[in-house]
Simulated scan of single mutants.
Amino acid sequence: MKSLFKSKPKTPADLVLQAGDLLTYLDRSSGTRDSKREEKMTELSKLIREIKSTLYGNSEAEPVSEACAQLTQEFFRENMLRLLIVCLPKLSLETRKDATQVVANLQRQQVQSRLISCDYLEKNLDLLDILVAGYENPEMSLHYGAMLRDCIRHQSVARYVLESEHMKKFFDYIQLPNFDISADAAATFKELLTRHKSTVAEFLSKNYDWFFAEYNSKLLESPNYITRRQAVKLLGDMLLDRSNSAVMTRYVSSRDNLRILMNLLRESSKSIQIEAFHVFKLFVANQQKPPDIISILVANRSKLLRLFADFKTEKEDEQFEADKAQVVREIAALEQGDRP
């Protein structure tokens, strides 16, 4: 007899609608906890877990593409992303984790060959403001940071963040005292500046002056070793990318930038020295060196050649050795009166 009364499994649309109702209730209700609210919170956690299982599958079954497509369509039609982001602080830790994974998966789900998550975000860009500001809330920062990185997989969404005032905040978020939060902010910052090549090149060209002034003073000259190490590595990644060749030429024509890189070459940390070398070699290789760059290199020639004489990577690296030999030849051949 039991089987006659077995509850019918919920469809993807049912899951979304029921979860949406509970999130709306949660959004509107006051913070007071009562038995009714606790009951609804438990039911909501269960529904979000089921939504996650539909998208990812479980130990017993792989995800079904039709169910995923239906769930994705309902999720964005019912404004569930907004509800989840707004209500995330009210959810339990485990439910926040499930919700973060749901949001990650939905950024990749296609419905009739379209990423409808991207269409939705383009019409709801204020949600990105909430996600970025999440770095100011220690309890929410890692969840919102993970969601943010998944959302900026879409080029138009990344462009919005790059062009917003939020970019300036990242220089402070990266230096927050909580290591986990600062590392998460640094990961998002790197993603914004490396994923979408053409958008990044446009951003760096348009915002060159303020961006590199902040980058140099707050990151490359930071008192924090990890911040300096990550910043010089990211700088190398950006400048060595072909899309950023115009920005690279401008960066390596500045005596102030050269001074910073030469200081990083003298660091006691081998990893910072190596990363600094990959940027320093661009100053030396520049065929259009301004006279003041040549003057600095000539004035410091003996110190630089002494430094490079003992300069080695921990593991044998043929490319590094070849680059170093080229840099040494270029510096040794420079004359004070050289002109491009």
Rank of each mutant, 00 (worst) to 15 (best):
I152G: 08
L297K: 08
N124P: 08
V111R: 04
M262I: 02
R114A: 09
F311C: 09
E78A: 12
K312Y: 03
T188D: 13
T11Q: 01
R242T: 03
D126W: 07
K52Y: 08
D180A: 07
Y120D: 01
S7E: 15
F203W: 02
P340T: 01
A201G: 08
V247C: 08
A69P: 02
V284L: 11
M147P: 03
P63M: 00
F5Q: 13
L125V: 00
R195H: 03
A99W: 02
L148P: 02
R37S: 06
E214M: 13
L121R: 06
F171K: 08
S253V: 07
A213E: 14
L44P: 01
L235S: 11
S198R: 11
C68F: 02
K2A: 14
E221R: 15
R77F: 09
E62A: 13
Y120A: 05
S245Q: 12
P63R: 05
L93N: 08
E165P: 03
I294A: 10
T194Y: 03
M80W: 00
L240K: 15
G134K: 02
K303Q: 13
R77Q: 13
R250T: 13
D34A: 07
L220M: 07
N79C: 02
L88R: 09
M1H: 12
F308K: 04
I226H: 13
R259S: 14
A231N: 09
D180R: 03
G31N: 13
S59N: 03
D317E: 07
A213S: 15
